[in-house]
Amino acid sequence: MNQITKEMRDLARELLASGEVKGLIGWTKGSRWYLTPPLFITRPEEAEQLYFDQFAVNNLTGLLLDYRYGDDKIALFVKGCDSRGIVRLLQDHQIKREKVLVIGVPCMGMSDKKAVTDPRQPVELPLLDKCLECRYPNPVIADRLIGGALVSGEPSEPKGLTASEAAKRGVGSKQADRFAQVKAIEAMSADEKYAFWQAQHEKCLRCYACRNICPACNCRECIFESDKKGWVNKSATPTDNAFFAVTRAMHVAGRCVECGECERVCPMDIPIMALNRKVIQDINELFGESDAGTDLDGKMPLGLFKNDDPEEFM
């Protein structure tokens, strides 16, 4: 068992035994070596099931939405990218600060299970692109820290017990490529762009995995759950799917915390982050550079009016 896992279990046991929290969300080892899915526990003896390794990729913060109307205090573990989801939920007034206990963990970078060739044979796998592009490997907010993790609200190098491992694995080594896909699509002609997105939107099943894992998708009732307004319906045609994709991207505009979970969970491999990043790039150009979900007290560019805001369309 690795040191982070040990600290995780010790702290979880303590928090649940003392009654400080009613439930705790972490990760556990899955059915195969390359799976470390989410786990929700309520009893101290269940702490033994917790586990952390380079496959604990799930951002757990969206699961807090299940408890937003309850009175129970819930603890959860966050990596750097996940922690921005906590800020998102707090800024959107979805959770109360005193009802969540945030435990920061250091991150060694998450491996890409799509690269698995033999499900029986553990091997070193390449990092997920989102980890290569990572700028916030350390939690931006935390009440407790394990594994030597350090809180940092600014882009930073990986810290804590796994710092050297993270550096060796290449966490953040492709930060400069963060907008590479956006630039590539922008370079296409209008017809090429249309063909590209049409092929992507044709695939969409409308399963809403992207929406349901997203900490920024926190509406009590999503417009796509109701066809009463007559704007949208369940039909999965390229046009309706494009309408969903663009609506979703615009609705998380300025609020997307770039955890990349939407794209990771898409069963059809639609490059959802390309759309999110395009919006982020535009916001950066229009309102100055900012990173959503990194500063709890900061104002979001689209949630703030300034007299010198650009008004190109007026």
Binding site: F40, G62, D66, L205, R206, C207, K234, V265
Partner: peptide
């Protein structure tokens, strides 16, 4: 209760499933 805690209630499983057969009736006006 325990199994459902981590579920996102997305439709990935059902829409990829060769046997899931539920459908809704809607209209496009």
């Amino acid at each position: 209760d325990e199994l459902s805690r981590k579920c996102l209630n997305c439709g990935t499983c059902a829409y990829l499933c060769p046997t899931c057969h539920c459908f809704d009736i809607a209209e496009k006006k």
